[in-house]
Design a protein around this nucleic acid. Sequence first.
DNA 1: GATAGTTTCATACAATTGTTTGAAATGCAA
DNA 2: TTGCATTTCAAACAATTGTATGAAACTATC
Lengths: 229, 229
Amino acid sequence: MSSDQTRSAILAAAERLYAERGFGDVTLRDIVAEANVNLAAVNYHFGSKDELIAELFVTRSIQTNRERLNELKAAEDKGGGRAAIEDIIRALVGPPLRGCLGPDREGSTAARFMIRASIESVPPIRRIKNREVDHLRKFAAAMRRAMPGRDDTELYWGLHFALAMAHHTIREKERLIRLSDGKCDLDDVAGIIDRVVAVSVVALTGGEVASKSPARPAVAHGRLTRQDL
Amino acid sequence: MSSDQTRSAILAAAERLYAERGFGDVTLRDIVAEANVNLAAVNYHFGSKDELIAELFVTRSIQTNRERLNELKAAEDKGGGRAAIEDIIRALVGPPLRGCLGPDREGSTAARFMIRASIESVPPIRRIKNREVDHLRKFAAAMRRAMPGRDDTELYWGLHFALAMAHHTIREKERLIRLSDGKCDLDDVAGIIDRVVAVSVVALTGGEVASKSPARPAVAHGRLTRQDL
DNA sequence: GATAGTTTCATACAATTGTTTGAAATGCAA
DNA sequence: TTGCATTTCAAACAATTGTATGAAACTATC
């Protein structure tokens, strides 16, 4: 078995086990058993258990961040360098929501792993998350360009609340289903994204934009377009 | 030393250590050393480490939940049995935000403990949080009374987003400060509550209420009154 | 096919951890 | 004081865990 095969087997097995059991009670011995490799292989290939977890998480994070930046770039290109605020928020919350929610992702190991990482916060993951600020600054900058004149503070709060709604929906998915007795459809990812974006936008614009929308929530049916706002 | 003294000493020491170091690397030996009691005392008085953590968390949770219900009751009494939606949201997010944020709470062990419990999610705490749904149902019911005719689904999403903003602000407090370079004042708890309430209300009412507010966020200065909406 | 570098393997290590035990101490009522 | 129940204590237990080791197996290059 080549070196890369072992590495990949460990990564795959670890992600699978972490996804279904959580970080708390998965040991290196569990992982190597699942991967059918020797115990020492983890330390040989990754240095330590924490570095293995870190590599798993950064891989998925980079993926999400790349999608985010791609969407942001596309939105800015579309607007001639200045993206619409709702498109910026959409680029921010869309990728993680699509990555973690949705019926097709139900069986996705990657999705469940990221949900775990979002719920249980282990040291190696926390360290990586702390570096996320630099990534978010790019979105803050885009928002500043989209809303010149708007106070920076308001902008940060809007960004913060948008992430709050997205992440909390991922984290507390099960609870919301239970609380709403299944009425909230967590499989309708597009609808959820629309909701988060709509609320974030009124939070940022102070409501004057939303005033044009009907009393019935604009996201009730179908996808929210810019015309709806 | 009487039995209760030992119990209390353990509880206090544990909360202090968990608050400052997190659940991950505080052992029973650390706790008993801090409390100046024997190692076996924890198992004698609490049964197990997990039950100690659970008791710490339920104590604080009950406290928050009681405050919430008190505020809800007061709001309903004020409105003759039917509370205004913004007062319901305020009763929901006010207590945890006041409990965990604010300059005076900076040194509060209880506050820092609850923040830890919100960030790191250990099994005994997760188990308790899962029971929180019943508590939230009371707020869903109050909201239903406040907004008759409104689709239940919208109501749950509004409740969910309100909690999202409150909890995420508690969880990611430090990151928001760093991201905003200190521009977001996390010590202005009343202002934060106003923000969360304002956004939640427009999320719930679909924006038609917020349309009467100025373009500048209504929460920029002072406390948001119902007239502001 | 010999050699050097890489990877695998079984095993041991060392430290930590929550928990248990049984005796000693303490408190308290009769 | 005696006797009984509660509480404390030092010590040991038992199991787990991440990591390190050194030899063996393997791979690729010359």
